[in-house]
Amino acid sequence: MTAIIAQLVISGLLLGGLYALVAFGLSLIYGVVRILNFAHGTLLAIGGIAASIIFAVYKLNPVLIAVVLVLVFLVFGYLMHIYLLDPLKKRNPFEATIGTVLVTVGLLLIISDLAAEIAGPTPKNIPLEFHAYIVGEVIIQRAELYILGGITLFTIALHLFLKKTWFGRAIRAVTQSPLGANICGIRSKQIHAQTVAVGCGIVAIAGVLWSLKFPVDPYGGFDLTVRAFTIIILGGIGNLVGALLAGLFLGLAEVFTSFLWASDWAPAVSIVLLLVILVVFPRGLASVRK
């Protein structure tokens, strides 16, 4: 029984860690720029597909692939904000909201369709074979350890980045008061663009790690976006540690639901949890902590 629970916990943490990684970028972008990016999960899928193709063709190390993709996604995110999203801020709030919905949904349609046309719609992954460690009856893949380690390191790095660096402080300043930050010499437009860029960069990393474990296809990103929304609400908007905990919790809950009950109900866990939490704490869990 202990072995079973240990195995389930490992899988749950892994799944949850990946969920959290998807949510990080979204949380950062939403928390700072207040933009609901509907194309977020689709970007992850595109990252995963690109990684899988690069791996198949050049046999590059996944870490190198991640570096390349992060650079590309950073540029993409930056340009996306400067040319598509930022101009909407000049509109009244009502039009700005609708505008961002239309722009990000439009992007979602464009990138998933282009990816399907170029790379084909079949799901893709990075088929790396690593050997496994066996402790008693518990089996851990080395790849999974890499993924878990990657997630942990990445979370810590991101956390330090936001806490310690000038950019991180600027981001937090802009989040709290764009006007105040402006007065202090921070150009909120630049900070916003850089945040969107970083958010997209994180998605690239998530995409590579994701495709090491699960296949992705160009149409499959939207349910990840929904899942990520759930996580950032559970964890508190803009709160990375909260998102990590929420993601891990969701992963564990899904894995245990499918073992103890039935796997066809596992996806319901996150949705029901989200609705219950929102009903009990209408402003998200973060409000409770305050």
Binding site: I98, G99, G106, L108, I110, D113
Partner: peptide, 22 residues
């Protein structure tokens, strides 16, 4: 044939970008 969703996406995006009020 092909790129239908892309075209719909581009139209949606452009309207959102330049005429967000519809």
């Amino acid at each position: 044939s092909g790129f239908q969703a892309t075209i719909v996406g581009i139209v949606t995006l452009l309207i959102g970008r330049y005429m967000p009020g519809g």
